[in-house]
Amino acid sequence: MKKISRRSFMAAAAVSVAALALTACGGSASSAASSVASSAASSEAASSAAAAELTTVEAGKLTMATNAAFPPYEMTTDAGEFEGIDVDTAKAIAEKLGLELQIDDMDFDAALLSVQQGKADIVMAGVTVTDERKAVMDFSDSYATGIQSIIVPNDSDIASPDDLAGKTIGTQRGTTGYIYCSDDFGDENVVAYDDGLTAVQALNNGQVDAVVIDNAPAQEFVAANPGLKVLDTSYAEEDYAIGMAKGSALEDAVNKALEELKADGTLQAIVDKYINAN
């Protein structure tokens, strides 16, 4: 089990500060506006130059592998578009790097393999940093905390993680929930499904006794399925980070972008957009 604390956030507004400084020193409104425009153009040029120096799977694009069945981190809207914490964060990173975001949706296992095989630049799908994964891919700095939670029927006799012993547990294939449960309770007691929704459907149908999955999607699934609840006691806490190929030249650039998004409050705003602190 891993535990991290959420990083602090600071506000920044460099362009506005620059414009204010010019007018305070006696510059005219038009000269201040010209300076801001010039600064914006310079920033755009710098982004373009930085993007040209980055080697990606497809020139000019940041290709993200994901499994868009993991709300609120990644999901598909009724219009068939992608949204969620990971999606918005990836868009913000791509913008910082002067690249266009390309999202490839696939099974979770396939998403992890995609970066290892050079088919995607990054994988973001609520990916937890583990020693096993660090052996085959590199990771960015952490950008979120993941909590493994337990979903059970309202009338279940399961009240804590210890009560999972001897029960049939549903998980999403390839996730840390699957790994932890297999280690703790034996492979024979764990059923792996392609996504969390299918695991929850199996729970509703009485095919499993509980589902172990990250807390944010657990809350979403329970809200959509009356008769189910999330236990108050969490199963594990862990780090979420962006996965990349071993030795990826993007790691420093991605970490720099993440640092800036944390510092200017963008990352926290994205999280707040999808997760109500209350």
Rank of each mutant, 00 (worst) to 15 (best):
G26E: 08
Q172S: 15
T55Y: 00
G174M: 05
D78R: 13
V190A: 13
I169W: 05
A263P: 00
A236K: 02
D104L: 11
M75N: 04
V136Q: 01
G170W: 00
A210P: 01
N205V: 04
A202S: 13
G265N: 12
V254Y: 03
G206W: 07
S16R: 06
D88I: 12
L267H: 15
V15R: 03
D264L: 07
Q201I: 06
D209P: 01
T266W: 10
A37S: 08
Q219A: 11
D121C: 05
A13V: 11
Q116M: 07
T175W: 00
D184K: 13
S47D: 01
Q219T: 06
L164A: 09
A11G: 10
E83G: 08
D155Q: 07
V15S: 04
S182N: 14
L101Y: 05
L197G: 14
T233H: 07
D109Q: 08
N255L: 10
R6F: 13
V212H: 03
A192V: 00
A29P: 09
A192F: 00
Y235S: 13
K96H: 10
V136E: 01
E260T: 13
A245V: 00
N189D: 12
K256C: 06
A202V: 10
S16E: 09
D141M: 04
A245C: 05
D163F: 08
P72W: 15
N67F: 14
A33E: 05
V254Q: 09
K61R: 15
T66L: 14
G80M: 10
E100P: 03
E132Y: 06
G247V: 04
Y143L: 08
A165I: 04
M137G: 10
G146R: 01
A68E: 15
A159C: 03
A13Y: 08
I103L: 10
T130Q: 03
T89I: 11
P226R: 09
A49I: 06
N276P: 07
K119E: 08
G196P: 09
G206C: 06
I275F: 11
G265M: 11
P153I: 02
L97K: 11
V129I: 15
A277F: 05
M124L: 15
V115C: 02
L112W: 00
E58F: 09
V87S: 11
D162R: 15
C25Y: 10
G186D: 09
S248F: 07
Y180L: 12
A45M: 06
A65L: 02
L228M: 07
T63D: 10
V87D: 07
L99I: 04
D121P: 05
A49H: 09
I147W: 05
V127S: 00
A202W: 02
A12C: 02
D131W: 01
Y274N: 06
M64Y: 05
T171S: 09
A65V: 07
A68V: 13
I147F: 04
Q102L: 08
S39C: 01
A253S: 15
E58N: 15
V230H: 08
V254T: 12
E259D: 15
A51L: 08
N225H: 10
K262M: 13
A120G: 06
I103G: 15
L113A: 08
A94L: 02
I169V: 15
E220H: 11
N215L: 09
K246Y: 05
I158K: 05
A14F: 09
T56D: 14
Q172C: 13
K61Y: 13
L20C: 09
V212W: 02
L228V: 03
L112N: 03
S48Y: 09
L97F: 03
